[in-house]
């Protein structure tokens, strides 16, 4: 009766007739419209499930791949205080990846499947992590701009219609507020330091500004899945809306740091009450997404290597557990 209803896998229901399907879809959309969260075992349209799995796995992969550029600097952090902050921050990213994988697994896709899709290139991750972290200042810029952009996105996602994803986002947002602050604090220290430190700061922001704006994805006019995602409340704000929020919040912070954002068209628009900014290089965006960023191959190669190097370890632990279980039975 209840035995087949583990929380690990979605329940199988008989293929509904098209009439039944239509009825279920109406009920489903009504729940969404009434802001009632959708929970794992409830009926949902296949496309909703697929969209969520795609988006959540991409989000989780971004957290995990995002550990690499920063991980590149742990051993070189210039003070012990900065070293432990950086370690704790990167560790959070691993944790956040896990929270999201864990939520995505409630939709019936295993982590192993998601990781395989990442490694074979079927699943994407945020293109920002295909840019290299070349200087210590990048540790600050990534916190300030990259995490800043991510938080803008995630705050919106914490109201997402899928319960487990929304709860994971709430937890992540709470934890990530330190990420942006530590980055900004790091940059502030550089801005008050020697000329060389100021150069490090400006040079780093020059490299990361545009890729950070790209993190919000294509313009609304070119974003194919957006309308449906908004209707399902998987997405709560459009790409361009979020990007504008980010720019508006960031420009005064840049002024405070005494740096120049590398966009000659950036200026306050009295009429709209927002900052205008220049055109994003969508060709570069497309290139990086399609595998031609500076670090795409390296990031995936590292991920595959860690996975393969760990195969004997995972196998050993599984074998040990099996032996113990057999002993208990005997």
């Amino acid at each position: 009766m209840y035995g087949d209803t583990s929380i690990q896998k979605p329940i199988e229901i008989a293929e509904p007739t098209s009439e039944e399907q239509a009825r279920l879809e109406v009920i489903f959309q009504q729940k969404i419209d009434d802001n009632i969260k959708i929970e794992p075992q409830e009926w949902m349209p296949d496309a909703y499930r697929k969209t969520l799995v795609r988006q959540m796995s991409q989000h989780a992969h971004s957290e995990v791949i995002g550990m690499q550029p920063e991980g590149n600097w742990i051993t070189r952090a210039p003070s012990l205080r900065r070293k432990v902050i950086l370690l704790a921050k990167i560790q959070d990213e691993g944790g956040h990846g896990l929270y999201i994988y864990s939520s995505a697994e409630t939709l019936g896709t295993s982590r192993a499947e998601m990781i395989e899709q990442l490694q074979t290139g079927k699943a994407k991750y945020s293109s920002i992590f295909n840019y290299p972290a070349l200087s210590w200042a990048d540790m600050g810029t990534i916190g300030w701009l990259v995490d800043g952009a991510a938080i803008t996105n995630q705050v919106a996602l914490s109201r997402c219609s899928y319960g487990p994803y929304s709860r994971a986002m709430i937890r992540i947002c709470k934890e990530e507020s330190f990420h942006q602050r530590q980055g900004y604090e790091l940059l502030l220290t550089l801005s008050r330091g020697s000329d060389e430190q100021k150069e490090l700061l400006q040079e780093s922001v020059n490299r990361f500004w545009w890729p950070s704006l790209m993190m919000f994805g294509p313009n609304d006019s070119d974003s194919p899945h957006s309308a449906q995602s908004m209707k399902w409340k998987i997405k709560r704000k459009s790409n361009d809306q979020l990007r504008q929020e980010f720019v508006d919040a960031t420009v005064p912070q840049a002024d405070f740091l005494g740096i120049t954002l590398p966009d000659p068209d950036l200026k306050w628009n009295e009429e709209s009450g927002h900052y205008d900014y220049g055109e994003i290089d969508w060709e570069e965006f497309g290139n990086v997404i399609h595998g031609n960023g500076p670090c795409n191959k390296q990031r995936i190669a590292n991920h595959i290597k860690a996975h393969e190097d760990g195969a004997w370890v995972r196998e050993a632990a599984a074998a040990y557990a099996e032996k113990q279980q057999n002993k208990q039975v005997a």
Partner: peptide, 24 residues
């Protein structure tokens, strides 16, 4: 993973497939 910020004083872990859930 879940108590990095002192979020807990006690933990339970349960094999997921040992949980029986009510059906929606």
């Amino acid at each position: 993973v879940y108590t990095r910020r002192s979020e807990g004083i006690s933990i339970w872990v349960v094999p997921s497939n040992a949980i029986t859930a009510s059906k929606p």
